[in-house]
Design a protein around this nucleic acid. Structure first.
Length: 215
DNA sequence: CGGGTTTGACCCGCGC
DNA sequence: GCGCGGGTCAAACCCG
């Protein structure tokens, strides 16, 4: 498994833009999580400067520049799924025009080696969408277990856990302070099951579209 | 009655 | 050591 050992995550603030028609969250799957564990350079991500500069006011972009001054995601684990995941992301990114209308962005994480023996955090995956509803339909069933008003924001952050037995996946949902129309969703952990909506036909079409992209 | 939500208390890591 | 702030717990509450 990729996240074992004494490492911790550091949000690098990379946001990748996806088609604006998508309004549903992707389920957290293996290929997503590998986003945080793959090399990426400024050359490989031609639009990164535009993306990053447009998002510098957001708190998720605090750690966006690496030591060398170039956007970089450190690689700790290489696997075929890692390569495939980033290949798809870059392909999508280059094929889309940068636009203020783009709604869905994926952030990448940098893994940092830790000193000492501290709790290892579950893999996290964060993106934002423009949506009127806080909780987007991602095919999984969630139970709310907490809500907190975070400092310097007028909107509370909500905490959800996957209702499936033995599944420890959590997600946080909050609204962007600068633009309350935007919802920040952060997944933490890995589902040990498939989406519950697989059992019925109520899954909306855009959800299929998004799943296809990440497959 | 069972499952989900609300909400104040509590826990814990971190910076000073 | 202390205080702050984010994350979690759990009892009370709500609703179908």
């Amino acid at each position: 498994m990729q996240n074992q050992g004494l490492f911790e995550e550091q949000d690098m603030g990379f946001f990748t833009t996806f088609p604006q028609s998508l309004t549903s969250c992707p389920p957290l799957m293996a290929s997503h999580q590998s986003l945080k564990a793959f090399n990426i350079s400024a050359d490989a991500l031609p639009h990164s400067e535009t993306l990053l500069s447009s998002l510098t006011s957001h708190k998720h972009t605090q750690h966006l520049v690496s030591d060398s001054g170039r956007p970089q995601l450190l690689s700790l684990h290489r696997s075929t799924s890692n390569f495939r995941a980033w290949g798809e992301v870059n392909e999508c990114l280059e094929s889309k025009k940068m636009s203020a209308d783009d709604q869905l962005r994926v952030s990448a994480m940098k893994m940092k080696r830790m000193k000492g023996r501290r709790k290892v955090r579950e893999p996290r995956f964060c993106f934002k969408t423009k949506s009127e509803v806080d909780v987007l339909d991602d095919g999984y069933k969630w139970r709310k277990y907490g809500q907190k008003v975070v400092k310097n924001t007028q909107h509370p952050r909500s905490y959800y856990r996957c209702t499936q037995d033995n599944c420890r996946v959590k997600k946080r949902v909050e609204r962007l302070a600068e633009d309350p129309r935007m919802v920040i969703t952060t997944y933490e952990g890995r589902h040990v099951h498939s989406p519950s909506h697989d059992l019925d036909d109520s899954q909306p079409p855009h959800s299929h579209q998004l799943n296809d992209f990440f497959r």
